[in-house]
Simulated scan of single mutants.
Amino acid sequence: MAEKELSSLLQQLHHSLSSHNYSSSKQLLSRAKLALLQINALVPTSESSQTHLVRAREVLELGALISIRLQDPESFTRYFQQLQLFYSLPEDRLPREGGNASKITGLYLLLLLSQGDYAGFHTLLEGLEVAEGKKRLEKDAFIQYPIRLEQALMEGSYDRVWGETKGERVPSEEFGVFSEVLIHTIRSEIASCSERAYPSLPIANAKNLLFLDSEGSVLKFAQSRGWSARDGRIYFPQQEQEMMLGEKDILVTSGTVIENTLGYARELETIV
């Protein structure tokens, strides 16, 4: 009875994911996990059949992907952790074919980047290199995407990060969710550093610096940060007093300027 119900629930979960209709997905996932418990398959054991292991992995992977669509990183992390018990099983017990280990793992790497957890990122990546082999990972689009982003972040090449998060370079829709979170994190960091490095910026230049698509977006972002705008410029409250000493200006034309801005602000932090 539980197995028949599980098959029906899996069909409904796949439809929920493909149709972007997640209104009942949490309830469906709860019922699916209960069905797995009833057949003793929610956690792999030595007695678990391959069929049950495949079904359990499928439920948990659907849960992880739906959690991303619902923008619930905590739930996604829990599903990722549960899946490690299945991903660590040998091939003869649970074949890789039919699973989404690469995609789920790549998404988790991207989540770690968006949270600024570089230590966790490298720990996971080193474990993957040992388990999978570096050459195999180099051919994996889902794993290489967060690796490219991390390399650009380490180089301070935020324009490259921006480029990677747009268009065909994003390996799937789910990656776009965490990519947006990552861009928001970077934008906030650039904004914080700019506040410490400059008394004001022209609105047009702030648009390029913050990777915003219009001057209207700049004004909206400025309002959210408590910045003031007048005469075509953005003024940073904690730096306005410097205006009495003369303007420092900036022309944003490339990622080099962004890197210099962040570097200068971080140097100020270490001095203070």
Rank of each mutant, 00 (worst) to 15 (best):
V218E: 11
L9Q: 03
V161W: 00
A32S: 14
R266N: 10
I203C: 13
K139Y: 08
I183W: 06
D92H: 14
V218L: 11
S75Y: 02
L182Q: 04
L210T: 05
S75G: 00
E168H: 14
E74P: 01
C193V: 08
P44T: 02
L153D: 04
A197C: 04
E97I: 13
G99A: 11
Y118V: 10
G176Y: 05
L53W: 13
F178C: 04
Q38N: 04
S172N: 05
V161M: 05
E247Y: 05
K26F: 00
Y145G: 02
S254N: 10
A191C: 02
L53T: 01
S67F: 10
S172Q: 04
V43W: 10
A197Q: 12
L94C: 04
F236R: 06
I66L: 14
L182S: 03
Q151A: 15
L53A: 05
G167I: 03
R230T: 08
H20P: 06
R69S: 12
L245E: 15
T51H: 15
E97C: 05
V130F: 14
R230K: 15
A141R: 11
F221N: 03
M154L: 07
G176S: 12
L109Y: 02
P73F: 01
R93W: 01
H52Q: 14
R148K: 05
F178R: 06
V170E: 07
R233Y: 10
S30V: 12
Q84F: 00
D117Y: 03
R93D: 03
S194A: 15
Q27D: 09
S254W: 14
T165W: 00
Y87T: 06
V218K: 13
E247P: 01
K26V: 05
P202I: 04
K220H: 12
N260Y: 12
Y145F: 15
E3S: 15
E97H: 13
G216F: 01
Q223K: 09
A197G: 00
G106T: 08
A206P: 09
A35T: 02
V130K: 15
K207Q: 14
G216H: 03
K103F: 07
E155D: 10
K26P: 03
K207H: 00
R136C: 12
M243G: 13
R148N: 05
R266P: 00
V272P: 13
T123H: 07
L112Q: 10
G63Q: 06
E215C: 13
Y118K: 11
K4V: 11
Q81S: 12
R69L: 12
Y198L: 15
M244E: 10
R160P: 03
Q238K: 10
Y108G: 01
Q11K: 09
G99H: 06
A141M: 04
I68V: 09
E174F: 03
R196Y: 11
T185K: 15
F80Q: 04
G226L: 02
A101K: 15
Q38R: 11
R266H: 12
E168Y: 08
